[in-house]
Amino acid sequence: MSLRRLAVYAAALTLSAWVLAPIGLIGLAAVTSREQLYRWPRPLWPQPITLDTLAFFLRQEGVLRALGNSLVVAGLTILLATALSAPAGYALARYPFRGREAVQLGLLTTKMFPATALAVPLAVAFLRWGLYDTLVGVALVHTALSVPFVVLIVASVFRGVSPELEEAAMSLGCNRLQAFWKVTLPMALPGLAAAAIFTFILSWNEVFAATLLTVNHRTLPALLVHSVVAEGAPLHYRYAGGFFLVLPALVIIFLIRRYLLTLWGVTVR
């Protein structure tokens, strides 16, 4: 093995460890019994493996409701973000309109704006509009946060469907809408699903807006932050909560990793 390859492998290993070690530790801690968690030195591999900690967490007041809230918010976000981003992405992919590059760049630059600066005005505005402490309010913010990404993802998905297919459909008797519906959409569906799932993760893990804009209707991350910061929740609660936050993202990213790679311009077959 050449030195170069060795270096590449070492770097890959370091990076993987950097990401995987905390996830592994959280995962292990989440299936460790409470007594063992507080023992010192703590065994790395829990003996016995137990679901007590996870069950304890789920039984805590507000946890199940927060889980439900998170799901509702994520669902709403997916709906709103897709409804907004799909047409925009299609236009970016298909029509060479004036200022297309600027729009694409502009979408990304919105991500450079510090959300913290928006915190107070947003809270005030939401109070005024009666959106404060509502799931719809949180979903709206999550939509705003995810749309720039989703538009670009969707555009790349549509770009992957050859315009000649649409033209062929049109030459066979479809109008533009029918051609989209019968040909482009079915072909883009897997990619769009990946985009939706990506939106789900964004929303599921978003903590800043969710904490700021809710009191009684907290999503799971907001609830966790609140319990940990404000109420000093115990260690096993933290581990179990962290585990529940990481789990869906992990599973989903594993399932759609092929699409995520293609979205960023690398084609994997």
Binding site: E164, E167, A168, M170, S171, L172, G173, N175, V183, M187
Partner: peptide, 30 residues
Amino acid sequence: LPPGRRDIGMVFQSYALFPHMRVFDNVAFG
């Protein structure tokens, strides 16, 4: 007139077969 109302048949350079349909459905599409 839009392409669909011109009574034309077109063969594309890339063939432009619909990948998500079987050959029968491709042919029967029109």
